[in-house]
Design a protein around this nucleic acid. Sequence first.
DNA 1: CTTGACCCTAGACTAGGCTCTAGGGTTTAT
DNA 2: ATAAACCCTAGAGCCTAGTCTAGGGTCAAG
Lengths: 135, 135
Amino acid sequence: MSLTIGKLAAAVSVNIDTVRYYERKQLLMPQSRTASGYRVYSQDSVKRLRFVRKAQGLGFSLQEIKELLDLSQMPEKDCGDVRARAQSKIIEIEDKVADLQAMLEALSKLAEYCPGEGRPLEECSILKHFYEGNG
Amino acid sequence: MSLTIGKLAAAVSVNIDTVRYYERKQLLMPQSRTASGYRVYSQDSVKRLRFVRKAQGLGFSLQEIKELLDLSQMPEKDCGDVRARAQSKIIEIEDKVADLQAMLEALSKLAEYCPGEGRPLEECSILKHFYEGNG
DNA sequence: CTTGACCCTAGACTAGGCTCTAGGGTTTAT
DNA sequence: ATAAACCCTAGAGCCTAGTCTAGGGTCAAG
């Protein structure tokens, strides 16, 4: 039920060096080492590694993922902690979407007014529509 | 109405070296230089610099931001070209929005089923999702 | 018992985006 | 007039998230 690093990497379709990198970053430690120094991983590592990749796909940084993983290992913690992190990531992403939509609007206007019917371009500049003000 | 590099940087809460870096990257050129070589910026640079920071937060690379900024600066003769570029940026951004919305949906679903405060981590749908299954 | 596939380490390298250092000139306030 | 605060350049160094290389050890099959 244990794996070498190569098998683990293949099982999750991750570069073998990436697995070693995650170890340096304390995200995924091998269960043990063989006498000759080979890393030995448990089946649990497959789950953990998948966790990392999934969470990355949802926009979490390795540091944030480490925190989530550490959290999941603390028996005294509850779902509220995890949920709060998910919640704040949701807000982060929602903000981005809103900003992107503002940018879309600016660009649409730019494209709309563009066909050169005497409209000065400055009237629909991206800067002007997307960002005039203070943030 | 003109600013030194230090004032500009302070106005947008950006490191002064970052402003110089953006100049090397052709994103933000000073209006002129004083006789002694000091950069002179216009009020417009503040907007432009803010735009850069905002767009970065949305996941655009400096190269992409340069392209966006160049769009709003293009002379009218290139109108067809401007329109085409705007159009392709629109598609890029729409893709980005779609990606973020997929993330949002996944995260929201996870958070929704998470029992939250006071419940043990074993019941956390978020961790469970990351840990289990095969994706 | 050797060949090939696999593993090890340290460290270099990448790209993008800064941030800092060294060494020096300029401006402003006292 | 001098010190603090500000500016200049070139170039080095740092972060994230890997990826790759060199030089070597180990393991399984024929």
